[in-house]
């Protein structure tokens, strides 16, 4: 369908532009704002990939929670609205070269991969992907272990955050 491709191309341009701006705008808070646009674009890409659940989760978790957290974090620093000076340091050319090489390697790998040219036309699975996902999350043959490990990971993140946050609080209180 042509419309899909048009939407994809527009979204891709928006996401890439936003992503470049995230690392190039001088103000930290503006970087956070461009990040939100990039994340929203990724949600659209998920919809195009017929994965509406992930699109919605992308918005809830990344825009609704992580973007808010990033803005909170930026506000915790003193330099939220100040320019951070030049965005490039003396290794920028080297970093660009490494990035380009990595990009070339990844592109080469993808092009040589069969799946890139022969997409499965009609995958023979239950059309209700969410049910499949829910089932495999608690299936010992599926993703049970990652599912439970994820909860431990989340717990560890919580404990770590509170530990660091408490220490910070003891140092200085200001609102």
């Amino acid at each position: 369908m042509i419309l899909d491709q048009v939407i994809f191309l527009i979204t891709a341009v928006v996401v890439l532009t936003a992503a470049i701006l995230v690392v190039s705008v001088p103000k930290m808070i503006h970087a956070a704002l461009w990040l939100i646009l990039a994340l929203a674009g990724i949600a659209v890409l998920f919809v195009l990939l017929q994965a509406p659940f992930f699109a919605v989760v992308q918005v809830i978790v990344y825009i609704g929670a992580i973007a808010v957290l990033v803005i909170f974090a930026v506000m915790l620093t003193r330099k939220a609205m100040q320019d951070d000076g030049p965005q490039l340091n003396r290794y920028s050319v080297l970093a660009a070269a490494v990035s380009l090489m990595l990009f070339a390697v990844l592109t080469g790998m993808l092009l040589s991969w069969d799946g890139a040219n022969n997409l499965p036309v009609n995958p023979a699975v239950n059309p209700d992907t969410i049910v499949n996902l829910g089932e495999s999350l608690t299936n010992p043959q599926g993703f049970l272990l990652p599912f439970e490990v994820a909860s431990i990971l989340l717990l560890a993140a919580l404990v770590g955050a509170i530990y660091i946050g408490r220490e910070h609080r003891a140092g200085k209180e200001e609102e």
């Binding site: 955050a161 910070h168 609080r169 609102e175």
Partner: peptide, 28 residues
């Protein structure tokens, strides 16, 4: 743009973790 207290960040983190947890439970 005054500096904010870490409490907001802490609440944000706790929220993020519970948010992810709950979202996991939906397909389940």
């Amino acid at each position: 743009w005054v500096q904010f207290k870490a409490q907001y960040y802490l609440i944000g983190l706790v929220f993020l973790i519970f948010d992810i947890e709950t979202v996991f439970l939906y397909p389940w």
